[in-house]
Write a protein that binds this DNA or RNA. Structure first.
Ligand SMILES: [Mn+2]
Ligand SMILES: [Mn+2]
Ligand SMILES: [Zn+2]
Ligand SMILES: [Zn+2]
Lengths: 139, 139
DNA sequence: CTTTATCTTAGAATAGTTCTTAGTTAGGAT
DNA sequence: ATCCTAACTAAGAACTATTCTAAGATAAAG
């Protein structure tokens, strides 16, 4: 999922965003991982060698990136907002033991027919959350 | 979904819980509604006429009721934990405009085949979240 | 009735996130 | 190349949702 630097820069510019070191770092970090980190995890990852960004800026960057549709939130546990640079439709698996979240490709599950739901609703999409235990957490 | 008082009392006792006025009120309130309220909404609902419960007790009750499996959390928007007295498997519809959450009966959607997912995962269940706009929010 | 483990509560504490405000800067304009 | 400024960063304060503390109250068993 990791992209070359120049491609990331172009992606940000295409969204009319100034390419600051912090914003680049946050987006590049999210693109490089598939573990749906929290803001706090991104912060400590970026600053582990040398200070790169403040906490407030991480939150600002995440919010901005979300507003332009480059990243999205994943809400699967209380009080923990996780982020995902994969904005294509896909599903998630969550380990109830360790909290790990993994992607499930859209095509891995059959398409669900939503045509018989409440006709008053204007449906725009859906996603499936699968619950279970990951390999590492099985006794 | 509302149940007679005695039935609620018996349900709590069956779970070895002391039937306090506050705990009864929280559970009865949740049973009487299908809108997946937040702790704050339950609090103000219970106390609107006369003081019935403190904030801390609402949180305590919700946690206890969840631990014994009488209610469950519904996490569909950031920073807002909602509660549901319907603990049978079912799906949810969320209006992206007003945030309203509605139940979708389990049988309303076809069963999803999860047998071809990562075999290292021990799958225990799943649920579908449908996104869209509710009737009231359509222009 | 007594007894006591459980429960409630006000207020303090905590954690995640957002706000404020002053200084910095990316990048278009000159 | 330098200037200009709207956009951005950042430290700390503020805010909000939730949990903790510890002291008094009570459901319900005996
Ligand atoms: Mn994902
Ligand atoms: Mn529900
Ligand atoms: Zn796990
Ligand atoms: Zn709506």
């Amino acid at each position: 999922m990791s992209k070359p630097t120049e491609e990331i820069v172009q992606t940000l510019k295409r969204k009319q965003l100034r390419v600051t070191p912090q914003r680049f770092a946050v987006y590049a970090n999210l693109l490089s991982r598939t573990d749906h980190p929290t803001a706090e995890q991104i912060l400590s990852d970026l600053n582990q060698d040398a200070p790169v960004s403040s906490q407030a800026t991480i939150y600002n960057c995440l919010q901005t990136l979300r507003e332009v549709g480059l990243i999205r939130e994943v809400l699967l546990e209380e009080g923990n907002c996780r982020y995902d640079a994969n904005v294509q439709p896909h599903h998630h698996f969550r380990c109830g033991s360790c909290g790990a979240i993994a992607d499930i490709p859209w095509q891995a599950l059959q398409t669900i027919d939503l045509s018989h739901l409440n006709p008053d609703w204007q449906v725009s999409g859906y996603e499936v959350t699968v619950h279970g235990t990951c390999e590492a957490c099985q006794a």
